[in-house]
Structure formats: structure tokens, C-alpha cells
Simulated assay, not measured.
Amino acid sequence: MYVMGKREFLNLFKGVKSFIVIMILLVTSYYSAKFANILMSGIDLSAKEAENIHTIGLLALLFLFGQLFIAGLSHDTINRETHERTIRFLVTRTSRTSILVGKFFGIWLFWISCITISFVLISIFARKIDLFIFSQTISLVTCQIAFTILLSVLIPKPGLTMFLGVVAGLTLPILGFWLVFTSNIWVKWAKFITPFYYLEREDFTFLVIFLLAGMMLFFANFVFNRREC
């Protein structure tokens, strides 16, 4: 599991796509924090919103495009192994559960590293790191990673997961926000299975997002362990 996670973690730092995503995160964090005071003077904000204004650019980026970024880099993390038949070699050295969990933690550590650096960059201007918002951001990314891995397990073709990853990355944020604020009683219940509902609340219910991620990983592992190589 450790070797698998390490390989996934290091591989994510290679390639043009990874470089572009990292630069987008850092540039967004830098400029949104740098010009936060200008933004704050132009609109009316509550005391809480004004206090966290420096993180707004990074948060908006991850809320709207986080799933798209993660899918773009890791949509084939599992089905690439099955498509190229390398899974047959891997399962002779470790269990399928270790493969899946190792890949998850490798991807997770990559994004933790990127987000941590982004928050450190923001702290230069904000002169603090808001651990509550940082934890909320980690919970969102964790859920997005779990969803990406689930797609990669359920769909055997890497090209198809790339397409569905793009579709999900564009539609899920819109759908999630709509479910949170809709008054339609027939679909309103669905907001409880989206991370956006828990992120909108200013309490520790965002921890439920980790539970949602765990459920997706559990189901992905269940399917993965019963699939032929």
C-alpha cells in the first residue's frame, strides 16, 4: 500500500497537466489574497465573510472546478491498470484493497500538499491560516477524490471516465448548489448526500463529508475486489 501510494503521489507531480493545475491553484491563491482588500472595499460583507475574504478565490476555484481538476489528473487511476493488464502483476504482490487504498492516499497527499502550499501563500497576506476553512477544503477534496476513484472502478475504459469526469466536474457543482437552495420538496432531500450542503453550514457537520467519501471508497473496494483482472 505504501509503495502504491508513493508511486501515485510522485507520478502526479509529473506531466504538463499536473503543472498547469498546480500553477492555477497557486496563482489563484496569490492574486485572490493579494487583492482581497480591494474586493472587500467594493462589496458589503459580514464580519465573518470579511475575515475570510483572502481564501475566497481558492475556495471558489475548488468548489466549481475541483472535481474537474481531480478527474483530469486521476480519472484512470484504477481502470488504467486493468486496461493495460498491469493489475495482474500488482495483485500477485499485494491485495486489491491495498492497491485501491494506496492510490487513494497517494492522490490525497498530492492534493493536501497543493492545498497546504496554497493556504501558506494566502497566509502571507491574511497573516493567519484558518484551520476551519482549511479542514472544510480538505473534506471537499477528499470526497471528490473518492468519487473519481469510484468512477475509475465502475467504468473499465479510461477514455470514458475522462469524459464522465469532465461532465461530472461541470454539472455536480451546479446541481449541488441547486439542491442546497431549492424549495422543491421532491428533490430537496438529495442535498444531504452532496458535500455542498455541509460546506454551506458554519459548523462541524462538514465532517459528514468524510463519511460520504468513506462510503464511496467502501463501495469502490467492494466492486474492485469482485471484478476479474
Rank of each mutant, 00 (worst) to 15 (best):
R7I: 10
I20V: 15
G102E: 09
Y2T: 14
Y197I: 00
I87E: 05
G106Y: 03
I117F: 14
G66H: 00
F125G: 00
E202R: 12
K6V: 07
I185R: 15
M23T: 10
W189F: 12
F219Q: 02
V27R: 11
V153Q: 05
F222V: 07
L164E: 06
I124Y: 15
R80H: 13
A213G: 11
I122P: 00
I38A: 06
S74W: 07
L12W: 03
N52L: 14
L58Q: 05
T94R: 11
K14T: 02
A213V: 08
I138W: 04
F196Y: 15
E8S: 11
L199H: 06
S41I: 07
F192C: 02
L109N: 10
V187C: 07
M40H: 03
F204P: 01
S46P: 08
V101F: 11
C114E: 10
A50F: 04
F196Q: 09
P156G: 12
C143F: 15
M40N: 03
M216V: 10
M215C: 08
L90S: 11
R7E: 13
D130G: 06
R127Q: 15
L131S: 01
F9W: 11
G57L: 14
F125M: 01
S135T: 05
F9I: 04
L212F: 00
Y2W: 12
Q136T: 07
V91S: 02
G169D: 05
L64G: 09
L68D: 03
G72N: 06
L58P: 07
L59F: 13
E8T: 13
V223M: 01
L164S: 05
G57T: 14
T94A: 09
E228P: 01
D203V: 12
I56V: 12
K6W: 04
V180D: 08
G42K: 03
A50S: 11
S118M: 04
T161S: 10
F224Q: 03
V16I: 14
T97G: 14
S152L: 09
V167Y: 10
I38E: 10
V141Y: 09
G214Q: 06
R227D: 09
S74K: 01
I99R: 02
G176D: 04
F119C: 02
L25S: 02
I185A: 13
E202T: 08
